[in-house]
């Protein structure tokens, strides 16, 4: 078995989800190499080389790869796929953008959002918004997979010393160009990697009221998330959405505030270790998955919670 992991990074630092990918690779077993495709990404390559159990770090450092454009990165991955049994990327918007392109170019299927490794050919993945778990077996010569990071414990980040190899080939499509981005700036931890997540729903009433959650989050070192209803209502930006079509989170503690608990929201958070629900509607479905439920007006309960922490 020879596994290639596509590193998740922002050209400056290796994203923690790469450690979860490494752990998924170890569950499959075999030699592991990591591809760092980016621009000015030497620090990322260095961090990748320090991961224990990684044999080789392939670095493709060129402007064509700066924004992880699928047209360019997919062709690079295909070129490096020769002789590999598994190609792994995180189930992030970047991985989901690139990997199906890789699979199609190789003429194989992609296994999306894999939750568990049974054998090197057999995997579990969620379907129907997590209401069913499918076990699938792939006979493709190379398995192209995206991995749900929260389903695998992170591997160690230090102790390795992989060989770093430069890859000089450049794939640059003339049909696509990066124009710009608006990235949310926050000092809080990333939603998918946070130990505690505090999320708000439609019950928050407006965007300003999310400040109540921010204050609780600051005390707990938590990330702040939202339900689709809150994002659709324009209270908060899309990158905060937790659910089937947003982010999948599985923190140690998830506090759902003013969230009714639609199926598609539960799909994104029900693997959390401890779930707390605060909602004034005692019939809200969120209480069916909550370890601790409090029927209360959030505008009284949340400030009280903050005061107690």
């Amino acid at each position: 078995m020879s596994i290639l992991i596509i590193a998740e990074h922002d050209n400056q630092s290796l994203k923690p989800v790469t450690l979860n990918l490494l752990s998924a690779a170890q569950a499959i077993g075999g030699e592991v190499a990591i591809l760092v495709a980016g621009n000015g990404c030497a620090a990322v390559a260095e961090a990748a080389a320090a991961l224990p159990g990684v044999g080789q770090v392939l670095v493709a450092d060129h402007a064509a790869y700066e924004h992880q454009l699928a047209e360019n990165v997919s062709k690079l991955v295909v070129e490096l796929a020769e002789g590999r049994s598994h190609l792994l990327a995180a189930s992030t918007t970047s991985g989901k953008n690139v990997m199906p392109r890789v699979a199609a170019l190789l003429g194989v299927n992609q296994l999306s959002d894999v939750l568990a490794v049974e054998t090197p050919d057999r995997f579990k993945r969620a379907i129907y918004a997590g209401n069913a778990i499918a076990t699938v077996e792939s006979a493709d010569a190379v398995k192209v997979m995206t991995i749900r990071g929260t389903a695998f414990d992170p591997a160690a980040a230090k102790g390795g010393s992989a060989e770093v190899v430069r890859v000089n080939s450049v794939h640059q499509s003339a049909d696509i160009a990066f124009v710009g981005e608006e990235l949310a700036k926050s000092d809080r931890p990333e939603l998918t990697a946070a130990r505690v997540v505090v999320s708000g729903g439609r019950g928050m009433g407006n965007g300003e009221n999310f400040e109540l959650l921010n204050r609780v989050a600051d005390k707990l070192g938590a990330a702040v998330g939202a339900s689709r209803a809150a994002v659709d209502a324009g209270f908060v930006p899309n990158d905060m959405q937790v659910g089937q079509t947003g982010k999948m989170v599985a923190p140690e503690l998830y506090i759902a505030v003013g969230i009714s608990g639609a199926i598609q929201h539960l799909a994104g958070m029900k693997d959390s270790k401890v779930i707390v629900a605060i909602n004034k509607d005692e019939e809200a479905p969120i209480f069916q998955v909550a370890d601790y439920g409090l029927v209360a007006d959030l505008f009284e309960a949340v400030p009280a919670l903050e005061a107690q922490l």
Partner: peptide
Amino acid sequence: QVKLLKVEPPADRKAGIR
């Protein structure tokens, strides 16, 4: 080339408390 071997309901969360 991908075969569906089995489909199971997800693990139930045990009921919590109020």
